[in-house]
Amino acid sequence: MALSQPQLATVKRTCWMLSLVVVAIPFLFPFLWMISSGFKGPTEIFGEPTLIPRTWRWQNFVEVFDYQPFARQYFNSIYIACAVTVLTLLLSSLAGYALARMRFAGAALLMVFLMSALMVPEEVTIVPNFFLMKWLGVMDTHVPLILLPVFGPHGVMATFLMRQYFVALPKELEDAGKMDGLSRVGIWWKIALPMSRPALAAVAIITFLFSWNLFLEPLVFLSSLENFTLPLALSNFTDPYGAPLWHLQLAATSLAVVPILIVYLIAQRQIIESFAMSGVKG
């Protein structure tokens, strides 16, 4: 029996959706598994895998805080990411504004100079930065974790993103500001910034996540547990022989990931657009 045109379309669409669902499994599955395993006991976790734990072991989420100063580490990550974000917003918008709008000698050269940073991986400069931080006496503090993202390639990327946005703003508004008697700083603060909320939001989102997920720098610069940031802390749930304590590690990972995921789900459109903005520019 031949299918009618609309029936055929329905079949096609169903197949289509089904294949998308299949492709989505390896993207979604790890999150589900992470959360469910975070509730399992140390023995069940090695048993036959089930998505729903047979016994819910809430205790994991208490033990996580006993095993390491996890609350402290959580707080470290939050405040470092906030500091990096605020500093990056401030400095990248200042420099980006100058590069977009001010006609000053050397500006073009400076652009090329800064741009060269975009292609140098952090791994290249981490060794000298290690000695620099040692010399400054800030090893095992959060200073390097704040300074390096702000002034490294990520900061340069943010500067360019801001610059691209400022370039496209109507210039006459700033001229009006000048005629009204605003200083350069006044124009930047009272006119350019209020009109650049989308770009500022994009830089803020990307920068926060960049700092939040940073791993190499904490690994190199931090040594005491109470100074750890989340990614470093997560990798540290091991028994004395270095084997992972899965139930704790996955519970802790869930605690670290789920809040970000919730924010992501609420603001997914804005967050995805922010990444698109930064990517298109590169």
Partner: peptide
């Protein structure tokens, strides 16, 4: 002399009203 101190006022083509 800076623009604002010349005692002038300007009306722009795009009006340049602050949107916020």
């Amino acid at each position: 002399v800076q623009a604002a101190k010349r005692g002038l006022a300007m009306v722009f083509q795009s009006y340049a009203l602050y949107p916020h």
